[in-house]
Computed example of a mutant assay.
Amino acid sequence: MTVSGPRGRLLTTRRNLLGMAGAAGSGLLLPNGARAAGTPAWRRPLAEADAVIAFGHTGPVTDGGWTMVHDRGVQAVRRAFPKLRTIYVESVPYSADATRIFRQFVAEGAQMVFSTSEYGDFIKDVSDRAPDVAFMECDGTNVTGNLGWYYVAHWYASYVIGIAAGLMTRTGKIGFLGAFPIPSVYASANATLLGAQSVNPAVTLQSITINAWFDPQAATQAATALADNGCDILCGIMDEPAYLRVALQRGLKAVMWNTGMLDFGPEAYISSVALDFNDFYVSQVRDLLAGTWQPQGRFLTLGHGVDRDGWGPTVPVEAARQADAMRTRLLAGYNPFRGPIHDNHGRLRVPAGVELSDLEIYHSDWAVAGVSGLE
């Protein structure tokens, strides 16, 4: 486990986190999900110097993508509140070990725990037994007495960039890399293709899922397969830039995710769905310290936590102009996810005149017409 002191100084404990977690916290975790009587601690003001904030990351902070962006948020918290202490663990597994890690955060005295990816029952079981601790789960779905969720409404930025991709593709084939066939991947693939089809109806999208968020070798192999199949634009929702390198080597174009990645291959770069959790994390900690934090679900919206990165140098001016015109409409409240929309089996999913809400997009488990390889 890595912690920061009052001045951001990094310390590394020599204790085995997973070994301790099973036994630690016997006096802190309530049995059978029972809740303590009275006002929970997170409803009372907390001195900055007494605060401990914990983060459980799905990958390494050096991944160049998802976890790196969250780590920037951790650093923003340290700058905003230099007297508090932060704890983080990288590469938290999706297993019972995750539960032990979250329990250990509580045992270490954390008053607020963030999981920077979805951990479902692994974090909920711990939050149920630690009612005095505030929990927030990124890409989660649960709201309980002390657990909320947060996520980025990335589908709008994907739609904008999809317009540029639809105008730039020569073959009419977009390749898409995802980790798993889960709602966030469906939302990203669907939005990208719908944006592309809004200016080029013949465009299709071929997807490959690699069963990992961070696996550069598998991502490289999948990107190569997509290129071999005629996809001249590669995009996806991965935690690292492997497929941008494939695009650069093959003379293709790429749309990235998490952060600006122009430096990894400017000749191939179209743009990126760029995330910024800094203000969100600072505001959550500020609310905790003030005793005003509340468990709820929250989207970070276009221009406020998620947006497109700058356009790459090879993006045609007209493609950028059309895409940015849509971005302006979206910022004004326009919703492009309106029927009729059919799925990739021909079924009408969204009737004419009906708009999909952010929650409906967030929970989508189907692919739009023109998407293949994502079931």
Rank of each mutant, 00 (worst) to 15 (best):
Arg7Tyr: 02
Gly8Arg: 01
Leu10Ile: 03
Thr13Glu: 07
Thr13Asp: 07
Arg14Gln: 11
Asn16Ile: 06
Leu17Gly: 06
Met20Pro: 04
Ala21Tyr: 07
Leu29Tyr: 00
Gly33Cys: 04
Ala34Cys: 04
Ala34Tyr: 07
Trp42His: 04
Ala47Glu: 15
Glu48His: 00
Ala49Ser: 08
Ala51Val: 05
His57Thr: 02
Thr58Gly: 15
Asp63Ile: 06
Asp71Thr: 01
Ala76Met: 11
Arg79Asn: 06
Ala80Val: 09
Pro82Asp: 00
Arg85Glu: 08
Glu90His: 03
Val92Pro: 02
Ala96Tyr: 11
Ala96Pro: 02
Thr99Pro: 02
Phe102Tyr: 14
Phe105Val: 01
Ala107Met: 01
Ala110Phe: 06
Met112Tyr: 03
Glu118Ala: 12
Gly120Met: 05
Asp121Ala: 15
Val126Arg: 06
Ser127Ile: 01
Ser127Pro: 03
Ala130Leu: 01
Thr141Met: 02
Gly145Ile: 05
Trp149Glu: 08
Ala153Lys: 14
Ala153Asn: 13
Tyr156Glu: 11
Tyr159Met: 09
Val160Tyr: 09
Ile163Gly: 15
Leu167Met: 15
Ala187Cys: 07
Pro201Val: 04
Ser207Ala: 14
Asp215Pro: 00
Asp239Cys: 12
Glu240Met: 00
Tyr243Leu: 10
Leu244Ala: 03
Leu244Phe: 00
Leu248Val: 11
Leu248Arg: 12
Gly251Thr: 02
Leu252Trp: 04
Val255Trp: 05
Val255Leu: 15
Gly260Asp: 14
Met261Asp: 04
Leu262Gly: 08
Asp263Met: 10
Phe264Val: 09
Pro266His: 06
Ala274Arg: 15
Phe280Asn: 08
Val285Arg: 07
Ala290Asn: 03
Pro295Asn: 01
Gln296Pro: 03
Arg298Pro: 01
His304Phe: 07
His304Ser: 14
Arg308Pro: 07
Thr314Pro: 06
Val317Met: 15
Ala319Gln: 10
Arg321His: 15
Arg329Gln: 15
Leu331Glu: 11
Leu331Cys: 04
Gly333Val: 07
Asn335Glu: 14
His342Asp: 13
Val354His: 13
Glu360Lys: 13
Glu360Gly: 12
Val368Trp: 08
Val371Gln: 07
